[in-house]
Structure formats: structure tokens, C-alpha cells
Design a protein around this nucleic acid. Structure first.
Lengths: 121, 121
DNA sequence: TTAACCGGTATACAAAAGTATAGCACTATA
DNA sequence: TATAGTGCTATACTTTTGTATACCGGTTAA
């Protein structure tokens, strides 16, 4: 068994650094995961609500991506046994801490876009 | 011309939020960009040095990814007219600020991996 | 009873991303 | 002169990812 590396160790070693970043990347990679997270950011929603919210997504992809997000602990799927059953998707606490990371990405993305715009005129 | 949205506005609107995150994602997406950035994190390097550093990468992919990174202002390519010419790749200041974002991703990735491990035993 | 909504699945296909392999012009070294 | 290294590019191919389209069983409202 390999001991888990400390944060400091991970950051100091390019190989482990890349692995850890990849762990995060994989959770949000794919064309539709971010839109789904975005759609659930302020409210929990039902399947068709999400589908209507994200233009262009097919039920196949929505289903597939929701499953992966659930596996990765980003989304919970709750079945309410009303008549008929309703199913709701909601972000987990893990997704909430993830969105702090996303916030940092937003900040960098916005700054970076400005720079690209400036440097290309 | 559309006015650039403020950070606050972007964060409050899921659509713009997702767009900005995607800007950042696109810069580091692809199988080899992170390893390349990792390889250049502490030193500038030459083409074959990077190639030797990252096991499994083909010159085609290294060339392609380096070009994209250069286009996105993450890496500079400098030609020294020594005999024979040597070419060095180096991270830009933009990449340095990006690595703060990557640091956040490392932190979340490490925490998230622990959680997954814990919850699966 | 038929039409429509919900929460999906199945199948086939197209496009994007990545790999394998070979080669090229140039230079330096044995 | 032959061999090896540098910094790539070209071509063909495989794998992964995403799309299009149709359909399903259950429920409810007209």
C-alpha cells in the first residue's frame, strides 16, 4: 500500500501535481458536465427541466453525464414516490466546494480572455 | 459590440459562468497539455527534453500541443541562433497565474480522491 | 381512448482526439 | 563517410466522444 502524499508533496512533484489536477479535470470533462452543473447551481431540477434548460443536449447525453456526475459524488439523484414518481437531481456538498475551484477558473478565464483580446488588436 | 461582463455578473449567470470556465478548461484540455505544463513548471526545456520527460508522448502530439499552448499564451518558443540552432520552451507569466488555479484544482482533487476512497470501503 | 408528458434506453452513425510509423533537413561527432 | 541527435512534419489509422433518431413503459388529462 502506498501512503497518500501530502498536499505539499503533491504540489512539489510535477507528476503527482498533474495526476491530482487530472482527477479534478476528469470530474468536469465532457461537453455537457459544466452546463449541467451550471443548471443545478441555484436549484435542484428534474430530468426534463435540465434538458429544457440546456439547449442542444439529447436525453442520451444527459442521462450518461448525470450518471457519471452521480458516480463522482457531484450530483444526487432522489426518487420521490409520489404519483407518478418524480426524480430530482441536486448538487452535493462536494459540488459546492468544487464550485470554489470553478470560481477561480472563471476569474482566470475572464482575465485571460481580456489579455487575448488586448494582445490581438 | 457587446460590453464585457464584470466578474460578479459572470458568476451570477450560469451561462456566462460556464463559458468562462470553459475558456480556462480549453487551455488545459487534451491528454498532454498538463504534463507539458508540469514538465516546464520548474525549468524551461527543449523539445526533446520535454519528450524524454513525458513518457508515451509522440513528437506529433508534443508539437501540436506546444503550438496550441503558444497560441493561448501559456508557453513561449524561443529560437537561439547558436550553431546549431536551439529552441527553448518556457512558461509565460499567464501560465504562472494559471498554476494558482491548478493549485486549487490539486487541493480539491486530493480531497475528493480521499473522499471517494473513504466512501468506497 | 387517444394523446401527451415523464424519465429514460437502444442502435447506428459522425466527428474529434489520439497513435503508430516513417521520414526530412540540418548539424555534430567518431 | 557513416552514425546519431535535434526539431520537427506527413500519412494512415484506431479510439473516444458526441449526435440522430426511434422507441419504451408508466401516468395523467382531454
Amino acid at each position: 500500500m502506498v501512503r497518500a502524499a501530502s498536499l505539499k508533496e503533491v504540489k512539489a512533484c510535477p507528476v503527482q501535481f498533474v495526476l491530482a489536477v487530472n482527477d479534478t479535470m476528469n470530474v468536469i470533462s465532457g461537453k455537457w458536465k459544466l452546463p449541467i452543473i451550471g443548471s443545478l447551481l441555484f436549484n435542484k431540477k428534474r430530468f426534463t427541466e435540465i434538458q429544457r434548460n440546456i439547449q442542444g443536449i439529447t436525453p442520451r447525453m444527459l442521462s450518461k453525464e448525470l450518471k457519471e456526475l452521480e458516480l463522482n459524488g457531484i450530483v444526487t439523484r432522489t426518487v420521490y414516490d409520489s404519483q407518478p414518481v418524480t426524480i430530482e437531481y441536486e448538487l452535493t456538498p462536494s459540488a459546492r466546494t468544487l464550485s470554489e475551484v470553478l470560481d477561480k477558473m472563471v476569474e482566470w478565464g475572464v482575465r485571460h480572455r481580456k489579455q487575448i483580446v488586448v494582445s490581438s488588436r
